[in-house]
């Protein structure tokens, strides 16, 4: 039987070259839908106004197809403020304010060998006290308002707050956004945003190469 070592040696490299090269494989329905002009679009989330799409509200359901089709570009995030101090090392804390569980998994996916965010100096930490950025996912559940406020309070400055996923940004179709409790520096749209998009947002927020 092969050992872990030989198993690893004989497996091929999985890790992406993103963000230095283009993303290998993007799930289409997380990227920005653009108008194709074919018929009328239906949008259950009311994200579509005429031909423009408010990505903060888009829930990636695909119901607007074929009037709108996704553009396949990983960069959907909007960075309001950047912090260069995090360029060498960037510690993030995942905060679940009331998600369906998929945003959590997409953020956590950044540690798997395909994305391996540690190669960029990004790592998870176990408490907001040690974090540079708070990654908030999910709608604002009633019981999580107070913990969220405390988490932001516990963040040392300089700091960044990310709203990841339609729920956190706008409340999506199921609840309230987190904007009532915290001011967000970076929004990462998608339902859920795919790991490439999250990684791109993390990189841009620290003024890193992209």
């Amino acid at each position: 039987m092969k050992t872990w070592l030989t198993y690893g040696l004989f497996s091929k490299r999985l890790t992406t070259k993103f963000p230095f090269k283009a993303a290998e494989e993007l799930p289409v329905w997380t990227t920005m839908p653009v108008s194709t002009g074919a018929g009328e679009a239906i949008c259950p989330a009311n994200a579509i106004q005429d031909t423009s799409v408010d990505m903060g509200m888009c829930i990636s359901c695909g119901y607007c197809s074929p009037a709108f089709e996704p553009d396949g570009n990983a960069r959907t995030s909007i960075v309001h403020s950047t912090e260069k101090a995090f360029r060498k090392s960037f510690h993030i804390y995942l905060f679940d304010a009331g998600s369906c569980g998929s945003c959590n998994l997409e953020v956590k996916a950044l540690v798997n060998p395909y994305y391996d965010m540690s190669r960029l100096g990004i790592s998870f930490c176990a408490t907001p006290k040690h974090a540079d950025a708070l990654i908030v996912v999910g709608v604002l559940a009633e019981g999580m308002g107070e913990p969220l406020r405390r988490a932001v309070e516990a963040l040392p400055s300089p700091r960044l707050v990310f709203a990841v996923g339609a729920c956190a940004i706008s409340g999506g179709i199921i609840g309230k956004s987190i904007s009532g409790v915290v001011e967000t520096d970076v929004i990462v749209p998608g339902c859920p945003p795919n790991p490439f998009t999250i990684l791109d947002a993390l990189q841009r927020s620290r003024g890193g190469k992209h």
Partner: peptide
């Protein structure tokens, strides 16, 4: 992750939404 990518390729969404 490989499985999720497979799902995304074939169903358009990593978590079968929509």
């Amino acid at each position: 992750e490989k499985l999720l990518r497979l799902i995304a390729r074939r169903f358009g969404h990593r978590y079968f939404f929509g």
